[in-house]
Design a protein around this nucleic acid. Structure first.
Length: 451
RNA sequence: GCUCCGAUGGUGUAGCACGGCCAAGCAUUCCGGCCUUUCGAGCCGAUGACUCGGGUUCAAAUCCCGGUCGGAGCACCA
């Protein structure tokens, strides 16, 4: 099995599907999982991606057994190309891009298509030596000019690019297109099974020509459908531009759909795995379900997340108690052995209470400050009533006066501000803010995870 | 336009290769209830789907034909 991203940025949630599906097959049936970085287009490479991609995979617990970088295999591609030219399966055109394309649309062969292989070999050398301008010549795979899909007709196997390559510099100028390098690599790396998206359906058809001409064994292909991932930014160029312009704080900005952003928000690697295994390899397109994804994650983290109080839009109230109070809230309702969060409140203590909740209360309504006492609303104040009651009343969270301000960053770009109870401050952990949601605390700020 | 794919509740899937056990299972969301000093967890309940039309057959979600809708590809990107 293999996975073959181009090193143009870090992995995002869409890539994680390919990675995990491949990894899962290797786990079940054995074999190698090859990470192949496809960097044969110098115009589309981010040098940092060579490191970021393996990091992301490691975090996802994807077990890569072998790593290959295509730009270090150029000699192999050249060798195979010459071999195929000499046998008449590939040729070199001296037409420019548009001319060649127009001819193909009309199913017309270029004049030189069937010239002696020797001539094409000479031309190929000229390509390597840089005797042509970019876009004015290319090596072409001979297929079928009558193929109903114009892109399958005599597709381009090598093209010139004089741009400096981040890894190989100006050592090479002639680069194979994906369809050629993929075919050669899939064969020599011994691929038996290929899992990839349906966007490659036509590429598979193109690549099969290379296999057939060389009598190579064609791998088994599986194509899965597109996943539309709503509400998140995934396009590498958009992310990249946003980072450069300062709009995003980096590749791990919580508004992005990268693996590192999701990690920062507090998702578990296992969540990705469970989700993608559960989704299977349906060929039909689907919408990514954050609901299900979050539900999986919630189930994984709930047992190990401590509970704390957070008060959004805090309003300060003097609860006018005439005695000292002590709060005793469990760190985890199912795990009393973990202990309590306790705060001592003096007589006439002040607390913070959520502004929105206060507005919703009826006058004289009795409510419970969770794990503290019972109060009643009178006009614009909250007044102490008793320590406990048997009645079923609303239970609302609060925080003591010495609580700290905190900002909670949402993936949609919004920010919630409020007061976080002192015991949670400066923690670096995923916690559940009771009646609010799960967040990943990072000292004096937090990233919203999910409800 | 051409070529190729696909279509099961709000969402995601199971079932389709070998028609009957499917008056369609599971998960999630929403709604209702129980429990609980969280709107979390847990428990119970409810609503909700085979794209349409033909055909084959004793019998079709499953096979065949056609329509509709959706998607992908039509690059010297991957």
């Amino acid at each position: 099995m293999r996975m073959a991203p181009s090193p143009s940025g870090p992995l995002h949630i869409g890539h994680s599907r390919m990675a995990i599906l491949n990894d899962e097959y290797v786990k079940r049936y054995g074999g190698d999982l090859i990470l192949r970085l496809e960097d044969t287009n110098p115009s589309n490479i981010d040098i940092n991606a060579y490191d970021m991609i393996p990091e992301d995979l490691e975090w996802l617990n994807v077990n890569v057994t072998k790593k290959v970088i295509q730009s270090s295999r150029m000699d192999l591609y050249y060798k195979e190309a010459k071999n195929m030219i000499s046998r008449g399966f590939m040729y070199v055109i001296e037409e420019d891009q548009k001319t060649f394309h127009d001819l193909k649309l009309k199913k017309i062969a270029v004049k030189c298509r069937d010239l002696d292989p020797e001539i094409h070999l000479e031309r190929f050398e000229k390509l390597l030596e840089g005797k042509y301008e970019e876009g004015k010549a290319a090596a072409v795979m001979k297929t079928d000019l009558n193929h109903p899909n114009p892109s399958v007709r005599d597709w381009i196997a090598f093209r010139l690019n004089y741009k400096k390559h981040p890894l190989t510099g100006d050592k090479y100028i002639l680069y194979p297109t994906m369809n050629f390098s993929v075919s050669v690599d899939d064969h020599y790396l011994g691929l038996t099974h290929v899992i990839r998206g349906i966007d490659h359906l036509v590429n598979t058809e193109k690549q099969k020509y290379v296999f057939k001409y060389n009598n190579w064994k064609i791998p088994e292909y599986f194509h899965y459908g597109f996943i539309n991932i709503p509400g998140t930014v995934l396009k590498t160029t958009v992310m990249n531009n946003g980072i450069k312009s300062g709009e995003y704080s980096g590749w791990d900005d919580v508004r992005l759909g990268t693996i590192r952003a999701l990690k920062k928000r507090g998702y578990k690697p296992e969540t990705f795995r469970k989700y993608w295994i559960y989704s299977g390899m349906n060929k039909s397109n689907a919408t990514f379900s954050w609901e299900i994804f979050n539900s999986i994650n919630r189930e994984l983290i709930d047992y190990n997340t401590m509970r704390y109080f957070f008060v959004p839009e805090p309003e300060k109230f003097n609860i006018k108690n005439n005695k000292e109070l002590k709060s005793h809230a469990l760190l985890h309702p199912q795990r009393p052995e973990l202990g309590y969060r306790e705060y001592n409140l003096n007589k006439n203590a002040c607390i913070y209470f959520p502004g929105k909740e206060f507005e919703k209360l009826q006058d004289n309504e009795i409510i419970r400050l969770k794990d503290l006492c019972v109060v009643t609303k009178n006009n614009s104040s909250l007044n102490y009533l008793s320590e406990d009651t048997d009645k079923k009343i609303k239970i609302i969270q609060w925080v003591p006066e010495n609580s700290n301000d905190i900002k909670i960053y949402y993936p949609d770009g919004s920010i919630d501000t409020g007061k976080l109870e002192p015991l949670a401050y400066n923690k670096n952990d995923v916690v559940q803010l009771e009646r609010y949601g799960y967040v990943n605390l990072n000292k004096n700020e937090a990233y919203f995870l999910h409800k």
